[in-house]
């Protein structure tokens, strides 16, 4: 059974996944993939993904593919025709940069889907990335959380602009749906409801 929750017009359902998730091949080098990477990144320009990995990534020849950001950037020409057919989406890790994505793809809305991969559920960068994609970059299409996605973060993910959730497969996605509505009257404005309580109600 599918573990994908799809949220459309405020209604959540279990949906079939139309996208093939394209993973990077394992790196031969020791990948220092710890969080906090972005600081290192900026200070040292260190790459997390090797050119060998990018070149070695197998992209299925047919159907809709969700490719890693680094692969998308490096092999965009190869993907262009399928991109025009709305068959290419991009996923990024929480330490990767939206500026890089935006430089490679000025019109993000040409992508039918962007996914953010969270390696550990406690990594809250995913919320800022979702918020920025929606509010700063005006991304309107499917925004998906993938990886260590658990029920107790769903409410926050939803409020940060995510509208599809690839739940960890060892847990019930059906039961998790309830947590999308853990709170009915949030205080602050966020992506799903920009107005804080004091602008929504005459308190």
């Amino acid at each position: 059974m599918s573990h994908l929750i799809s949220l459309q017009a405020g209604v959540a359902n279990i949906a079939e996944d139309a996208w093939q998730f394209v993973a990077l091949p394992p790196s031969q080098q020791e990948v220092r993939k710890q969080a906090g990477k972005v600081v290192l990144f900026k200070l040292t320009g260190e790459q997390t993904v090797t050119p060998e990995q990018i070149a070695g990534t197998l992209i299925p020849a047919n159907g809709k593919v969700l490719v890693p950001l680094t692969v998308f950037i490096a092999r965009k020409t190869e993907l262009q025709a399928r991109l025009d057919q709305q068959e290419v989406g991009v996923w990024l890790d929480t330490h990767e940069s939206l500026t890089d994505l935006n430089q490679a793809q000025a019109d993000l809305n040409a992508l039918p889907i962007i996914a953010v991969h969270v390696e550990r559920f406690a990594d809250g960068r995913i919320f800022s990335l979702g918020t920025l994609l929606r509010s700063r970059y005006g991304f309107k299409n499917e925004l998906r959380a993938v990886g260590d996605v658990l029920r107790d973060q769903l409410f926050f993910l939803k409020r940060s602009g995510f509208n599809s959730f690839a739940m960890r497969t060892d847990r019930s996605a059906t039961e998790a749906i309830a947590s999308l509505n853990d709170f009915s009257q949030p205080y602050q404005g966020a992506v799903d409801e920009a107005r804080p309580a004091f602008r929504r109600y005459n308190r």
């Binding site: 559920f121 973060q153 926050f156 409020r159 940060s160 602050q188 966020a190």
Partner: peptide, 9 residues
């Protein structure tokens, strides 16, 4: 419950 800041470093 600020959603963006629910899981800070």
């Amino acid at each position: 419950f600020h959603p963006e800041f629910a899981l800070l470093p």
